[in-house]
C-alpha cells in the first residue's frame, strides 16, 4: 500500500489523540489528523480552532483553508472570540495542541518568526499567529512536521513558541504552569524528550525509515535506543478516510 509523506503524517498524528479529549488544531495536517481521529477511534474528540470555533465538524471535501471562516465554523457548538478561545486555553481546558514550524530545536522550541538576526532578518516569516499561545497553554503539545535537516537545528534564530524551553523544568522556570511537548511526529520517526537531558530522542521509526536516515535529516545530536520500535503503517481504512477528507489534495499535496 503506497502513501505520501503528508498522508503518513496525518495518520500518525491522528493516532495520538484519545477519545473524549479536546484538541486545539490548526488547518492543514492538524485538522486532517483530528478529523480522521473522529472518524476512527475518537468519535467524541472535540476540535477547537483558534479562529474561534469549538466543536466544529468539517465537511469532507470542504476543509477550511483558515481557522476562521465558515468552513471552520461548520456545525460548531460555539463561535467565541479568539480572546475567549485563548482564555479557555489559559485555564487549561485543552488537552492537545498541534504545532508545526520552520525551525525546531532539541528542546522542542519553535521558530516561525525570522531566519537570521531579528533586527535584520535574512527571511522574514509570517510570525506567531496563535502558535506561541497554543504552545504555552495546551496540556500535551504535539509537533507535526516533515523531517528535514534545515528544520531540526541546534539553535533557533528566534524562539517564537516555547516547547520544553530548556533542560529539566524549563517551562516551569519560565512561568508556564502546565503543559509539555509530548511528541514530535515526522515522516521518518516519532520522538519525545529525555527527562534527564530535556533533549529530543527517537522513540520509534516510521515504516521504511532507518535511524541513520533520521540522524542524517536532523541538525543536532539525537539519542535513540539501539533498536527503536517500528510504527505500524497506515491502514487501508485510514488512508481511504483521510483521502476522502481532502479529495482535491489541498492539504495532502
Amino acid at each position: 500500500m503506497s502513501y505520501t509523506a503528508s498522508e503518513l503524517l496525518a495518520v500518525s498524528a491522528s493516532r495520538l489523540l484519545a477519545d473524549g479529549k479536546i484538541v486545539f488544531a490548526g488547518v492543514g495536517t492538524p485538522l486532517l489528523a483530528a478529523s480522521l481521529a473522529r472518524l476512527t477511534h475518537a468519535p467524541h474528540l472535540t476540535i477547537v480552532v483558534e479562529g474561534g470555533a469549538i466543536g466544529l465538524e468539517a465537511e469532507p471535501g470542504r476543509l477550511p483553508i483558515s481557522t476562521n471562516e465558515m468552513r471552520a465554523g461548520r456545525r460548531a457548538v460555539m463561535l467565541p472570540s479568539i480572546t475567549q478561545i485563548f482564555l479557555y486555553a489559559q485555564r487549561g481546558y485543552f488537552d492537545y495542541g498541534f504545532l508545526g514550524g520552520a525551525q525546531i530545536d532539541p528542546y522542542g522550541n519553535i521558530n516561525t518568526s525570522v531566519i537570521g538576526p531579528a533586527e535584520r532578518p535574512r527571511v522574514r516569516l509570517p510570525g506567531s499567529g496563535g502558535a506561541c499561545d497554543i504552545a504555552c497553554h495546551c496540556r500535551e503539545i504535539v509537533i507535526v512536521t516533515r523531517h528535514e535537516r534545515r528544520r531540526f537545528v541546534e539553535r533557533l534564530d528566534f524562539v517564537t513558541s516555547p516547547g520544553q524551553v530548556g533542560a529539566g523544568d524549563g517551562r516551569r522556570r519560565a512561568g508556564l504552569l502546565f503543559g509539555r511537548v509530548t511528541a514530535v511526529v515526522t515522516d521518518l520517526a516519532l520522538m519525545d524528550f529525555d527527562p534527564a537531558t530535556g533533549r529530543m530522542r527517537v522513540v520509534a521509526l516510521q515504516p521504511g525509515a532507518d535511524l541513520a536516515q533520521v540522524r542524517e535529516q536532523t541538525g543536532f545530536e539525537l539519542a535513540a535506543a539501539a533498536e527503536p520500535d517500528r510504527l505500524p503503517a497506515p491502514s487501508e481504512q485510514e488512508l481511504a478516510l483521510v483521502r476522502a477528507l481532502d479529495p482535491a489534495r489541498t492539504f495532502l499535496g
Partner: peptide, 10 residues
C-alpha cells in the same frame, strides 16, 4: 496580566 508568551523571545 496573562500567562502567555513566557519563555518566548517575543
Amino acid at each position: 496580566p496573562s500567562r502567555t508568551a513566557l519563555g518566548s523571545d517575543l
